[in-house]
Design a protein around this nucleic acid. Sequence first.
DNA 1: CTAGGGTTAG
Length: 388
Amino acid sequence: MPQRNMHSWNIMIASYTHSSMYSDALTVFQAFKQCGSLPDHYTLPPLFKISMGLGEPCFGWMCHGLVVKLGYEEIVVVNNSLLEFYIKCGTMSQALSVFFNQNAHRDSVTWNLMISGFGKAGLYSDAVHCFREMLKHQNGFELDYMTLPSILSACGKEGDLLKVKEVHGFIVRNFGFHADAPIGNALIDNYAKCGSLKDSENVFKTVCCVNLVTWTTMIYCYGMHGKGEESVFLFEKMINKGFRPNAVTLTAILASCSHSGLLDQGKKIFSSTISDYGFEPTAEHYACMVDLLGRCGCLQEALQLLKRMKPSSVTGSMWGALLAGCVMHKNVEIGEVAAHHLFQLEPNNTSNYIALCGIYQSRGMAHGVATEGLINFTKGSFLIPFLI
DNA sequence: CTAGGGTTAG
């Protein structure tokens, strides 16, 4: 272009960012700075996304400085993107100082970010508190349906059935029975997390918006409650309705088969889903298969599955699933193989040492407990006398 | 040209 303005630079930076091409976006930003111009309120939000995408929090901190220096704290979109940046970095203390900044304005996005941020940080009661504060403060903007999945998930992870019911009632009073798919999905998931599978089923049967995530969630909920046969039934029904399972659906159904000991169904679903829908199984799928085989006592078969893979692509969760199966079935030989791979992959994870010692102990092999303990125990050595 | 919600895995 013979002549560039702010608009053209901003389009380039935003477009690279939206395409997840963060280093290209950064290169454009640096070229822009060379021209001697300063970023405006359109330039700044993508910069925080670039910082997160590159895993370079320092760049985001620098951009926070630009926001303050250039006086963009009062622009609500800029401040919200800053808030999201600190939440994604896991630094809630910084997020709080942005939230309580006297110069900043708040809107419904600000509140939604805070509520989902508290939830992601595991601070569920703070999320609930924040939701109640939002209801008090919501003069000026309408209650926003985007908050509801976040608050439901915070209540559900807290395990508080009454709170989930309370929010459900709130949804019906404010939005009627026309909640969108993410809200229905969150209701199904969190009723089950609070132990009320009946309520999950009722929501599943009555919601008006159903998508693939709805089916996946319900399949997973049955698995959570040890109802593998219901999961398999629903999985087949879903396919008959014309939904194509994705990678998450497959982990949900495999985990459910595993928890219910449905070995043959699990194996069949694994191979037929992969061939029918043509996607590559991920590390998680292999971990689920090892878990399934291991729980059912097919430890040799599970070990063979891992041995057929390229050694570098066998992950800790696959060996971990195998080790857990060996603990269950008191298998020393395969347990030692799995444990020694884990000692290489995650030397500071004490639960692996404890698992292997548990196998020795269950077989009355006190010598093995002491040897592994002396060689490998770092933090947990006080456990050895108890095991012996 | 700028910001926010839902499902999974030892």
